[in-house]
Design a protein around this nucleic acid. Structure first.
Lengths: 196, 196
DNA sequence: CCGGTTATTTACCGTAACGCGAAAAAGTCA
DNA sequence: TGACTTTTTCGCGTTACGGTAAATAACCGG
């Protein structure tokens, strides 16, 4: 049930409609939390039923009206209460790691391609985080408490992307060394292995 | 449906019963994948229905008999096929990061405690990985393809734990600096904020 | 004014994943 | 006999996630 709390956290910044929240979950928070618009609307209904948020219709010209949700006092309290509970470090559930565990049961080439795509992805992420960091904190210092949190979020993002990107490079090199020594064997080995 | 594939990957090492798999998921693979015994048994049934694994009863003395599962040719093929599909980098869904996004809506102290627990956790993990590394690869070199995969798994584990641990230290320091400047205000601020 | 696009919300349906509590079966040991 | 380990299974529930799609509502282009 952390999605609800993530939404509450988003709403502390400013009241938003489901549509806006969905877009927020595509950008800032979306860097480490995915949720499509349906999950969000569903979660919003639940939160409203619980009295954690209140919806106010905002009439718009040129667009359909929207329901802008605001945190209630109960919502704030619930959020604060949730924030006081200890969190547990998330699992790194990663298909790639499973494949590495049984590396000799897989073809190396697709894995290498996968790793190259990852490397690009993580480098890209790193660059994006860096750009945001430079834009929001040109001097590297946060002025408010809220900014401090965002800075720390960027920092762990940067650290993580860098670490994983470096590992990808290492893994690609290692796999290249593994794939080369026996290129002749592989040709016969792919379609038929030791029929017992 | 990645749990099924993780089980298949485990079974490439050696045939195992559900009970043994559950314990495996508590140790080696369990570092980055959690599954209790029920999930495993349920998944095993599905895999057997699909013909990816075969169960053979093994009579035991002193214990109830057990059903040892072996990969079938279809299972191997399915696993290989799964391994050839591109993977997508996992989300870092972390409650802590959500809290950082709205840092000023939370109490700092529990967060700091949380971070300290995390720091310990990640250092612990790091030490465990290092111990395993030194035991399995005293010279830092893998000899077989399978070992190469395991080595790479350990490497990313080490890199990740180190990066996060370092970040935890940074975050703890930063939060300490944030919490101190206004200790007097916090006393009144916790129970009642700006009643609108 | 018709049709396409964007913004906004909602409904229905499926299933994978997780978790809890329980218990059956088989054997050991005290 | 009773408690405990090993091994497997059942059943119920929730959360999360995913797709398809449709109901509004207003715009814009022709």
């Amino acid at each position: 049930m952390a999605l609800g709390d993530a939404i509450l956290a988003c709403l502390t910044e400013r009241p938003m409609s489901g549509y806006e929240l969905a877009k927020t979950f595509d950008s800032s928070i979306g860097f480490f939390w995915k949720a499509d618009h349906q999950q969000i609307y569903r979660e919003l209904s639940k939160l409203r039923d619980r009295g954690h948020i209140q919806g106010h219709e905002v009439v718009q010209s040129g667009k359909p009206n929207k329901l802008v949700y605001t945190l209630t006092q109960e919502g704030r309290a619930a959020l604060r209460h949730w924030g006081a509970r200890p969190s547990s470090p998330p699992m790194m559930k990663d298909d790639l790691l499973v494949r590495l565990c049984a590396l000799d049961s897989f073809d190396i080439e697709p894995l290498r391609a996968d790793l190259m795509a990852r490397l690009e992805h993580h480098r890209d992420r790193y660059a994006r985080y860096e750009r945001i960091l430079n834009k929001l904190f040109p001097d590297g210092k946060a002025t408010s408490v809220a900014d401090t949190g965002k800075l720390l979020g960027l920092r762990i993002g940067l650290r993580h992307e860098q670490a994983v990107a470096e590992w990808c490079e290492e893994a690609i090199e290692t796999l290249a060394a593994v794939a080369k020594p026996a290129p002749v064997l592989l040709l016969e080995d792919t379609s038929r292995e030791s029929n017992s």
